[in-house]
């Protein structure tokens, strides 16, 4: 018995040293795999609990086994890709308008103290309203369901972008303006060479937050009227009691959300100029 324990300890120690010797990226990868395994484990346990409870037995297809099988089958179908594309398209429209409105407003808020003081309260107030709360108004105001959904997404994306941009503008060193003016910069050059590069990372930080919120809002928004998109697919799977597909779509939502966030994080890194 005692030999076994020492053996186990020895192995653990060895494991620790191997881990420490690994390059950073491999350590990161190992840790990420560990995290995903833990998630999978809880999902699996959850599946077993659902299955063993007579009340919830009917939802057993939520478990990782059936879900991942359904996912595998879905990946081969154009249905999944069309669904993803229509959701991504809405997100892009929402982000586009969020940026088109949010960045200029953010510049004004960041640059003019007066605008900031006037805008602060109403903006904080509006920001706190769940984008989904605009749903009835959106449905009234827009002729198409798509229009309404994109409006909801804009209500979600615009605030982080406004605040991110404003923060970036406020951080601009006033001397940068003076130096640029002194070197003969005109308004456009000031914008292009000084203001935009100076605030880019903060704008993208805002966009990253916006993408996160928009992605979360998108699915319930797609429960509305439309007949495409991931939210619709979830609703549809529920109505047809197709629980393994439903779970598979949830996995897809998570994966794409993660991807979008990674892209945004890469952009922030690319545009950040602060050196550690």
């Amino acid at each position: 018995m005692s030999t076994v324990t020492t053996n186990a300890k020895f192995n653990l120690g060895q494991l620790a040293t191997t881990y420490n010797k690994m390059p950073d990226w491999l350590q990161g990868f190992t840790n990420a795999t560990l995290g995903m395994s833990i998630l999978l484990f809880f999902w699996w346990v959850g599946g077993i609990l659902i299955e063993s409870n007579p009340d919830t037995e009917a939802f057993a297809a939520f478990a990782p086994g059936p879900a991942l099988t359904a996912l595998w089958e879905l990946i081969g179908t154009p249905f999944l890709w069309d669904t993803i594309l229509s959701s991504l398209e809405r997100i892009l429209y929402g982000l586009f308008w969020g940026i088109v409105i949010g960045v200029p407003v953010g510049v004004l808020v960041g640059y003019f103290v007066f605008v900031r003081q006037v805008a602060n309260m109403p903006f904080q107030f509006l920001r706190m309203i769940s984008p989904l709360a605009w749903m009835p108004i959106a449905v009234l105001a827009f002729e198409t369901w798509d229009g309404a959904i994109i409006f909801l997404l804009v209500m979600a994306t615009v605030w982080p972008i406004v605040f991110g941009t404003a923060h970036g503008v406020q951080r601009i060193d006033p001397n940068w303006f003076q130096v640029a003016r002194n070197l003969g910069a005109d308004g456009y050059q000031m914008l292009r060479r000084v203001i935009m590069p100076a605030i880019a990372q903060d704008v993208f930080a805002g966009i990253r937050l916006a993408v996160g919120v928009a992605w979360v809002v998108l699915v319930p928004a797609e429960y509305l009227g439309v007949t495409s998109g991931l939210g619709y697919a979830i609703n549809d799977a529920r109505d047809t009691l197709d629980y393994d597909t439903l779970a598979a779509i949830v996995v897809v939502i998570g994966a794409i959300g993660y991807m979008l966030d990674t892209i945004a994080a890469k952009l922030i890194k690319y545009y950040s100029w602060k050196m550690e």
Partner: peptide
Amino acid sequence: AKWNMMFQKPSLYPW
């Protein structure tokens, strides 16, 4: 740019 000022701080553009 023909009458150019240099300030106490270099104020270079860090990007």
